[in-house]
Structures are given as structure tokens and as C-alpha cells.
């Protein structure tokens, strides 16, 4: 393993991710360090919008590797996750071969089922990393896939090889760094989780989220960044159908910057609340006194943290 594709210590992870603009707390950094060092898949769970997917993106740029992403959905099968033969081209080639005079059937078969007609999907591509340069494989929202696919993935993650009946077995020279994410819409099978290192990502603390806002929306004024972050933190403590994630915070700050606001006021909140709250009931609940109360607490928190 070259120095590029590994970390020397937990601090190294934190510092290098920070350089890529990803703020990782100690726990996440420790787990990432272990996942890369022990070459075990990293299983990330957490509420929607806590930055699970961006871990993989940041990790790939930190390691200087390619990011290969597989978005999961119900019914995801080998043809879309691993490989598929390019039937249209195969049929065309078959016609051409037939048109030419003498064709040996075995030769034709060997030709038609060669690498040239293979459509490589994310899982197969993730096995093709050059020595010392493992790609980062992101298996996003594994909870959306069904059990059949989980079973297949488990097999792949223990062997890092794919067998294609017509072609033979393709084994990884350099196994990928694997990141799986789940929104916990169902319990993923234990056997798959056992292969992985598990980390639950919490909503970020005020300081962490503020650091993310500063990093991602540098044009936002300090007061605005603080107020929005504090208010979103308060909104997460209210019992909402859909709590806002970090991307909602960033969207809100960006929207307010575009509207040239440098601080929050009730009218502005009213006009732009739809950027943070995505359920009609939640927006309706956040009016008048309730919002005033949250704002008051948010302002206090902002002051306390700056003091």
C-alpha cells in the first residue's frame, strides 16, 4: 500500500479531510482510519442529510482515488450493479459474422462474449483499481435495495471477485475502499453489517455545523451564518415530521445570501422557511409564537457560543 492510499493516524484523517472541506469529528475520523487501514467496508447510518454520502466524496479526493458510486433501489440487479452484455452490439456482430462465409461457432462465441461487449457497472469497475490506488466504492442507500441484492453484495465484499459465466472470474488486485450508507428505512441484514465497521453519524454540533457553513458558503456574513445555524439546531429539537439536514442549512444560508440578507428577521424566515422545512405540516406548525420562541432560544445559543 502506498502512502497515498492510507492514513498514518486518526489525526491524519481529520487534517486531510479538513483540507478537502469535510469536517469530521473524532469518532468518524477514527472509524474512517480503521476502515482504510484494516480495509473493511465502512457502514454509515444516520438521519437524512447528516453528510453520509459526502464522507465518500471527501475520502476519495483525500486518497486521490476515483469515486465509484452505486445508487441502490428496489430491484437493483446484477445487470445494473455488476455487469451486462451489450446485446444490441452482440446481435449486430452476430449478423455480420453470419454474413461472412465460414464461421466457427466456438470462435464466434468467444468473440461475442469478450471484454469488448461487456458493459461494466459500478461493482465490477470497483475491482479494477491499480495496485496502490484503490478506488472508493460508494454503495449509497443500501436500505433501498432488497435482500437479494444485499446477499450478492455480501458475497462480493468477502471475496472481492466477480464470476461471469461466459468470461471467467475477475478478482480485484487492489480491493476498493467501500463506503455503505443507510437511512435506516429498514434494518439491513446482520451478516452484511458484520463485515463492516459501523458508525452512526449524529446531527452536527453547533460549532461543527457553523464550520461547515463557513467552509461551504464563504460569502455569508458571520452573523447570518451563526443565526441560521442556531435556528436550524433549534428546529431539530422540535418534533417535526422531517427534520432539516445539513444540506438544508447550506441551502438556506445560500438563499439568504442570494437575497442579500445579513441577518434573520421574522418576515424573512416566513418567506424562506420552505427551503429548510419540506413537510407542509411542519411549515404550518412553525408560525407565530412557536417560531418566536425557537428564534429567541437560537439567538441565545448563538451568543453563548460566541462568548
Amino acid at each position: 500500500m502506498t502512502a497515498l492510499a492510507s492514513f498514518t493516524a486518526v489525526d491524519d484523517v481529520q487534517a486531510r479531510l479538513a483540507r478537502e472541506g469535510y469536517v469530521a469529528d473524532r469518532g468518524l475520523a477514527t472509524t474512517i482510519f480503521l476502515a482504510v487501514t484494516l480495509r473493511r467496508p465502512l457502514f454509515l447510518e444516520g438521519e437524512a442529510g447528516v453528510g453520509k454520502t459526502s464522507v465518500a466524496t471527501a475520502l476519495a479526493s483525500t486518497l486521490g482515488s476515483d469515486l465509484i458510486r452505486l445508487q441502490c433501489y428496489e430491484g437493483l440487479d446484477v445487470a445494473h450493479a455488476v455487469y451486462e452484455w451489450d446485446y444490441a452490439r452482440q446481435l449486430l456482430e452476430l449478423r455480420i459474422l453470419e454474413a461472412s462465409a465460414d464461421v466457427d461457432r466456438d470462435d464466434a462465441r468467444r468473440e461475442l462474449f469478450s471484454d469488448r461487449y461487456l458493459l461494466k457497472r459500478p461493482l465490477l469497475r470497483s475491482l479494477e483499481g491499480a495496485p496502490g490506488r484503490p478506488p472508493v466504492l460508494l454503495v449509497d442507500e443500501i436500505d433501498r435495495a432488497d435482500e437479494e441484492f444485499e446477499g450478492y453484495l455480501l458475497e462480493l465484499l468477502s471475496e472481492y471477485r466477480v464470476s461471469i459465466p461466459e468470461l471467467g472470474t475477475i478478482a480485484a488486485v487492489e480491493p476498493p475502499v467501500v463506503v455503505l450508507t443507510s437511512n435506516r428505512t429498514r434494518e439491513v441484514h446482520d451478516a452484511l453489517k458484520r463485515r463492516c465497521l459501523y458508525h452512526w453519524i449524529e446531527y452536527p454540533s453547533f460549532e461543527k455545523e457553523l464550520a461547515i457553513v463557513r467552509g461551504k458558503v464563504p460569502r455569508a456574513g458571520e452573523a447570518l451564518a451563526r443565526q441560521v445555524t442556531a435556528l436550524v439546531q433549534e428546529l431539530r429539537t422540535a418534533e417535526l415530521y422531517k427534520s432539516p439536514g445539513i444540506s438544508e442549512t447550506l441551502d438556506w444560508v445560500s438563499a439568504l445570501v442570494a437575497l442579500e440578507r445579513d441577518s434573520l428577521d421574522p418576515a424573512t424566515i416566513d418567506d424562506t422557511l420552505g427551503v429548510v422545512l419540506k413537510a407542509r405540516e411542519d411549515i404550518e406548525a412553525m408560525t407565530g409564537d412557536r417560531l418566536q420562541g425557537l428564534m429567541g432560544r437560537a439567538m441565545l445559543q448563538g451568543v453563548r457560543h460566541s462568548g
Binding site: G27, T30, E187, D190, K193, C196, Y198, H199
Partner: peptide, 14 residues
């Protein structure tokens, strides 16, 4: 905290 997270990552799955 590193020991804690190392153990949690390897022993907890839920």
C-alpha cells in the same frame, strides 16, 4: 475516545 470509537465501530451494528 479513540479506543471507545474503535470498539464501537467494530462491536456495534445498530
Amino acid at each position: 475516545d479513540d479506543v471507545y470509537h474503535a470498539l464501537r465501530a467494530s462491536l456495534v451494528r445498530r
